[in-house]
Amino acid sequence: MEAFVAAMIVAATPLLFAALGELVAERSGVLNLGVEGMMLVGAVCAFIVAKSTGSTAAGALAGAGAGLAMAALFALVALGFSANQAAAGLALTIFGGGLSGLLGRDYVGVPLPKPGPLFPASWAEAIPYGKAIFGHDAMVYLALASAVGIWWFLARARGGLKLRAAGDNAESGHALGLPVLRIRFLAVLFGGAMAGLGGAYLSLAYTPMWGEGMTAGRGWIALALVVFAGWRVGWVAAGAVLFAAVTQLQFYAQGWGWRAPSQFWAAAPYLATILALALLAGRRTAGSAPAALGRIFRPSS
């Protein structure tokens, strides 16, 4: 069971990165459906850089940078050219799928050493479930720290207030002199960097290797997480862990004697996403979407 919990936390990490990034972008009023594409490009760039430098940190940084660059492309089209956000996000996902396959074609199946745990092994042995708590690499804790940081930023910081204002009513924000488009641009870039980190975690630590389409819909699950977490940070974190548990079923269910075809367990996360969306949809207490989400805004001059 300890192994399952530990694996769950590891599996939650990429979802958490990506969903937190999307949460920030959506709170500023921008719906970026390109998470999957940004994660893939982040994953492949991270892998290539880590392989050639031997540094996981450099790889993670490259992943974040790649995600950010992808998000910049989206922002240019969706914000700069006022294009439909849903369509621009789909373009980003298609583009990212192709680009990552192209960049990573010489790296498929190449092995990479797993990054070691952040804390000394003695900590993990000192307490029950210590391995699930202290046994992870640095990126797991970075994801947790960023959840706390983003919560603080949105709830307490002035920048967070401006960001929420941009997502609530762009016209009012503009009338008040807020640089709405700039705020949204930055939020989208941040979301891209986080998605890139999520992808990087998959290729650097979770697997660790590169395979085409390796995100397997995690970007989309991250998008769903934001919706049923009601755009709240704490619920995103809880949801990520829950979903990670479902993704781990395919590895553990057989061992526990639960009988079903392997494809069923592989489909479980997608089915669980649909189920969760359906169950939480009726509940109006679950928080509400930013009022300006997905709406095109062009400042008048």
Binding site: R158, R164, N169
Partner: peptide, 22 residues
């Protein structure tokens, strides 16, 4: 403004804070 430039999702205090120096 005629069509108020208020933010419905924010509190009244946050609405005021947005227009003032920190």
């Amino acid at each position: 403004f005629q069509h108020f430039s208020v933010f419905e999702g924010l509190s009244a205090l946050e609405n005021v804070a947005l227009a003032l120096p920190p």
